[in-house]
Design a protein around this nucleic acid. Structure first.
Lengths: 234, 234
DNA sequence: TGCGTTTTTCTTGTCGACAAATAAAATACA
DNA sequence: TGTATTTTATTTGTCGACAAGAAAAACGCA
């Protein structure tokens, strides 16, 4: 018995604590396990992860830097709200980044990028078949992030990642009540986008990326105008 | 003698330390007082600001989040390098954001925004007259950031701010050896941009923003191809 | 002298504790 | 009973100290 449970607990690699807390909290926020407005208690997290408050705090600072949580000075810190009043600014940025990243991918991708992209494409299709909403959302984001990476512009990639993150929260809200129709159509559109990228057809990639983005936006907008009561929960 | 120097030192408001360190380090990095590659020593900073390492660390985490410093795990942390090999990705993003933010400002600005923009415009003109390179660079960035704010899309604004920051470092390098010609021309172009925004002429704003950006890019590119030795210093 | 190994040194990552700031609860007073 | 004020409680911000990790220095051996 080289390792009992009670006295030799601090077995964890040195710099790994922060990343673990950061990754987990991030996922919980984006999957709405921690809905907007949820209080974040440092002490509670410290107990949960069995570490001191210092690394917890560092993870929180990072999350705050990405706008996922908000901290009131000297007082509580909580999960950021989704700004439904300014959703159009979000959509504007999202559509533009869809276009730009797809376009750049068509121009700058290397053969090995396509394998990665196709991998996420298949993950997404599998999630659609399995009707697994959470996995649909996250693999969709991963798919488009991979395209952005292939475009090789880190400035665009980082903004796009942030937008996709916010999109995960919004889509999660959507899939809470509706989980039909748009998935299969999107699988096909993804395939078209891959084809355009592979053919290095920049204009086609731009056009398809734009159409794809606008379709998503239109659907979400339609839903949100239909049931306005959904934002009361936040 | 209500306050001697030796025994009542900890007179500083509670949450203010982090922001002070963050702001100062950020400026020193962007003005190249701390050139790329400079080592960042937590203990040294703690002594310099007369505080513990904890708030220093928090400021560093934030700076790392914005890409201004890089931290090797368990080993030193240093000011991020300027990636001269991929300057074109920077320019691509910069030009696009110039266009988008100027365009949105023409569409969404409110009267009070123009006052702010004009204020920075005059600051920049004054810096040009005074031949104060550092102030030229920072007021120019502030001018364009104000335009972005008037466009009212926080996603675009935050990316643009990051690009303008990186631009401050690159321009600082430029002005180290050349401080003539382009300033006055840019003052005029700024005035044209303001006029287009005020007239809510979206297409003109787009066009002027693009031309302005491309002019800057062309100048910087010309310089960097001329003296290639400049990057040896980094 | 050249090279592998051990020791030292220096920096970071983590911890537990304390103090300030604020909100909530309790109390006093009209 | 309602309001102002004091008290308590909770949570954050900061501190000093210690230990882990990695590079540099010192050392030993051929």
């Amino acid at each position: 018995m080289a390792d009992t449970d009670t006295n030799s607990t601090p077995e964890r690699k040195r710099g790994s604590g922060v990343k673990m807390v950061y990754d987990l909290l991030r996922d919980e926020i984006l999957d709405l396990v921690l809905p907007p407005g949820s209080p974040i208690d440092e002490v509670q997290l410290a107990e949960r992860f069995k570490m001191s408050r210092t690394p917890i705090r560092e993870a929180l600072v990072r999350l705050a830097g990405e706008g996922l949580i908000e901290t009131l000075p000297n007082r509580s810190t909580m999960v950021s709200n989704i700004d439904f009043l300014n959703l159009n600014t979000f959509f504007d940025a999202l559509v533009l980044m869809y276009r730009v990243t797809t376009r750049l991918a068509a121009r700058n991708h290397r053969p090995e990028d396509l394998a990665v992209i196709r991998g996420f494409h298949e993950d997404y299709a599998a999630a659609v078949n399995a009707r697994d909403a959470l996995r649909m959302i996250s693999t969709n984001a991963a798919f488009h992030a991979a395209i952005a990476e292939a475009g090789r512009n880190p400035y665009f990639t980082s903004l796009f990642r942030r937008l996709l993150d916010e999109g995960r929260r919004i889509l999660r809200l959507y899939y809470r009540s509706y989980d039909e129709q748009f998935p299969q159509r999107f699988v096909d559109e993804h395939a078209e986008i891959i084809a355009a990228i592979e053919a290095r057809d920049i204009e086609a990639a731009d056009r398809l990326g734009k159409a794809h983005a606008e379709q998503i936006v239109a659907q979400v907008q339609k839903l949100f105008s239909r049931d306005v009561g959904i934002d009361i929960a936040l």
